[in-house]
């Protein structure tokens, strides 16, 4: 290829890249940089009030803010509960259905994937009704089944509210991992499985020694995306509880939104965003490292 032709190829290549690059720069890179910069200011987005550089004051305030600490605790609970449950449950379901015939396999994939493709607002409205203190089906069933004698205010009682959020999160989170695991288990090299079975390995040994190793990349991907999704739990909180009752369901993502768009403390909200990003990055790095060692 002549240098001229190579140059023209390169230019046209970059031109094709440019539209998505513009979007990436405009909606990811620049906001990210602005977020970091404003986290060191008292930005309120009020055009009549210039942003003042305040150094690390926002970051220091975070660790003295009881609501942030509560939101951090709630977020960690959500991550610690939902990530293993999603991974184990989806692996269990996938193991049970991956070698089924096409019809039943498609049926189960649709059943578990449906909450993923259903709009989060619709899902939330249905759950809100199910949990309702006044007209909810859960109270109706439990009361008529003699399990409770008085309606429970599932979303209005700090004892239950976070658990209720986690349950909804689980139902909307397992669909994609199940589909991924079904695909990964279907791609496991059968000759290895057969060889192990010939050598006398039982089902448990085959699973842990052969299949588990081969689906590890999928597991790693699922771990990372589930962790990130759990850290970023926002819509459910916004639509169901607004962080209440008494901050029992506040998450960092919701508190960022609340701080920035209700209290107009954009600088402080961005400082939380930076801390959240660091948490996610560290956790993802640890997960990658552990999986690599495995």
């Amino acid at each position: 290829m002549s240098p001229e032709l190579r140059r023209r190829e390169t230019i046209s290549g970059y031109l094709f890249l440019l539209p998505s690059l513009v979007f990436f720069l405009g909606f990811v890179v620049i906001p990210m940089v602005m977020c970091i910069i404003t986290s060191f200011t008292d930005a309120t987005m009020n055009s009549n009030q210039p942003d003042v550089f305040i150094g690390l004051a926002n970051y220091k305030e975070l660790w003295q803010d009881p609501i942030f600490l509560k939101a951090l605790r709630n977020t960690i609970i959500i991550v610690v509960v939902s990530v293993p449950v999603v991974c184990i449950f989806s692996l269990w379901v996938a193991s049970a259905i991956f070698n089924m015939k096409e019809g039943p396999l498609s049926f189960f994939r649709v059943v578990f994937y449906l909450p993923v493709v259903t709009g989060s607002v619709a899902v939330t409205v249905v759950w809100k009704w199910m949990y309702s203190n006044y007209t909810g089906i859960i109270n109706y069933v439990l009361k008529n089944g003699g399990i409770i004698d008085k309606n429970i205010n599932w979303l209005g009682d700090p004892k239950y509210a976070l658990a209720c959020i986690i349950i909804i999160l689980l139902t909307t989170s397992v669909g994609q991992p199940i589909v991924l695991y079904v695909s990964a288990l279907g791609n496991v090299d059968n000759s290895l499985v057969e060889a192990a079975e010939v050598d006398g390995a039982n089902n448990t040994q085959v699973f842990w020694k052969i299949k588990w190793a081969q689906i590890m990349p999928t597991t790693l991907y699922i771990l990372v995306i589930t962790t990130i999704n759990s850290f970023q739990c926002f819509a459910l909180i916004q639509l169901l509880t607004s962080g209440g009752p008494n901050h029992a369901t506040d998450t960092i993502m919701y508190y960022i939104y609340y701080t920035a768009f209700t209290r107009f403390r954009f600088g402080y909200g961005n400082a939380m965003g930076v801390v959240l990003a660091i948490f996610i990055a560290i956790l993802s790095a640890v997960q990658f490292r552990l999986a690599k060692e495995k």
Binding site: S132, L155, A161, G244, P245, N246
Partner: peptide, 21 residues
Amino acid sequence: VNFDASIAGGDEMKLFRQGIL
């Protein structure tokens, strides 16, 4: 009388109109 953190004013009006409250 419940202190109810699961509903706001608009929800309360609906529940009242439904005859529940």
